[in-house]
Amino acid sequence: MTDRVKRWAVSRRSAVTGALMALATALAPQLVSAQAYPSRPVRLIIPFGAGGVADVTARLVSEKLGDKLGQRFIIENMPGAGGINAARAALSAAADGYTLALFSNGTAVSVSLFKKLGFDPLTDFVPVSSMGYFDFIFVTQELSGYKTLPELIKAAKAKPGQLNVGTINVGSTQNLAAQLFNATAGVDLAIVPFRNSPDVLISLLRGDVQLAVENYTAVRSHLADKKIIAVATSGPVRTSYLPDVPTVKEAGGGDFEAQSWNAIFAPKGTPPEVIKTLNGALREVLADPELKKRALELGIEAKASTPEEIGQRLKDDIEKWGKVIERAGIAKE
């Protein structure tokens, strides 16, 4: 072999070796994240404050998820702005599975409620799995005279605009559920928004509003001491914790369904293997009898999904609540 040929062969080998090394370097992060995931703590950013239903759900699930996968799952509360700040914070992190976002039906609402989100939940994120679903409870005051939802509907039709329904702030799912109820039941209840759940219940107990739409944790103690009456639940079927209470649809409220949910999403570009690992772990964790029992005590049905199922749920709820917001004439923020 001549010196010229030898030099060419060496140069060729060096070029091939360099190309292979570059390829290995480029693929290394994906391979490590998929094969060794998780190798360090994982952040789950949630757009709610501590102590709420979403926060409690996330903490229940994260504790079990950490035990399952051998790494801590750290909850980072970032409330306010319709979940915009929390989602943007998740997007600003690397798409490697170590920063996740909690989405909810509130995320779907925000798409139509805000003029500008700065992100698209359908294209900037990929779904992982649902964590929990929970209904809202339609409650009346014991002394109001309305013991059932049909009684209240009949009175509301006889006195349009004269009966009140209390909810938390405009644009909340409770508030939009009341808007939807007016449409499906064919009534004209005056919807009165309050700053928080305690204010709603004080108003109900005083008789200022005749109906309230709230989550189970907010009304549970009052139901126990018989001060208020659950006349309907908002989901597609009766709840296991209030099995004798009919759904709104069963009680004559028309084609009504309003259910809240929480789910884990990841920034777009997160390796599919990581999504698969998380989804598989969540399926096992959310099937745990102890976790399911603790969740039910809070009015939450712990339930996993495929990424496709919760992705479709988000898409459907964006469309559903967008129509309710438009029909109600709620101004965008």
Rank of each mutant, 00 (worst) to 15 (best):
L298D: 07
A232F: 01
L65R: 09
V324E: 05
R40F: 07
A281K: 01
V126W: 00
G51T: 06
V16F: 15
T99K: 08
A224K: 14
I84N: 01
D188Y: 06
M21W: 07
A50T: 13
N175E: 08
V61T: 10
Q210G: 05
L27T: 13
T17M: 11
P198E: 12
L152V: 12
A101N: 10
L60H: 07
G322N: 06
N105M: 00
Q210E: 14
A94Q: 15
K226T: 12
A224M: 09
I153A: 05
T306W: 00
P79K: 01
L189A: 11
A178N: 08
A15R: 15
D3Q: 13
F194I: 09
A58R: 00
S33H: 13
I74L: 14
A230F: 02
R327Y: 06
V56M: 13
G254M: 08
N175I: 11
R195Y: 02
S197E: 15
V324N: 07
R294I: 12
S92M: 10
G145K: 05
D124Y: 07
G51S: 12
T25L: 14
S144T: 08
G97Y: 10
K226V: 01
V5W: 10
L143T: 13
G311H: 02
A230H: 01
G280D: 06
E301F: 10
P29F: 08
G118K: 15
L23D: 00
G118V: 12
S172F: 06
P160T: 08
E63K: 13
G80V: 04
P79T: 08
G207V: 09
Q162G: 05
P29Q: 10
K249Q: 14
S172M: 08
M78S: 14
V237R: 03
P41M: 07
E142W: 11
A178D: 13
G118M: 14
K116R: 15
A304W: 01
A212Q: 02
V170C: 03
L20H: 03
P289L: 10
S92L: 11
R43A: 12
A218F: 01
G106I: 03
R220A: 14
N85V: 14
L278R: 05
A36K: 08
P271F: 07
Y241A: 00
V126D: 00
L60V: 03
I46G: 04
G161R: 10
T184D: 06
L113P: 04
D120W: 01
S104L: 05
T25W: 11
V213F: 03
L180D: 10
L291A: 10
N105R: 08
I46L: 15
N279A: 11
G145D: 07
G82T: 10
L65G: 10
L298V: 06
E250G: 11
I310P: 03
G253A: 08
Y37M: 13
V248Y: 01
F134R: 03
V285I: 06
K292I: 09
F138H: 03
M78H: 08
R88S: 14
P121T: 04
N182F: 10
T247G: 01
V324Q: 06
L69F: 09
P121V: 03
G252Y: 04
I45F: 02
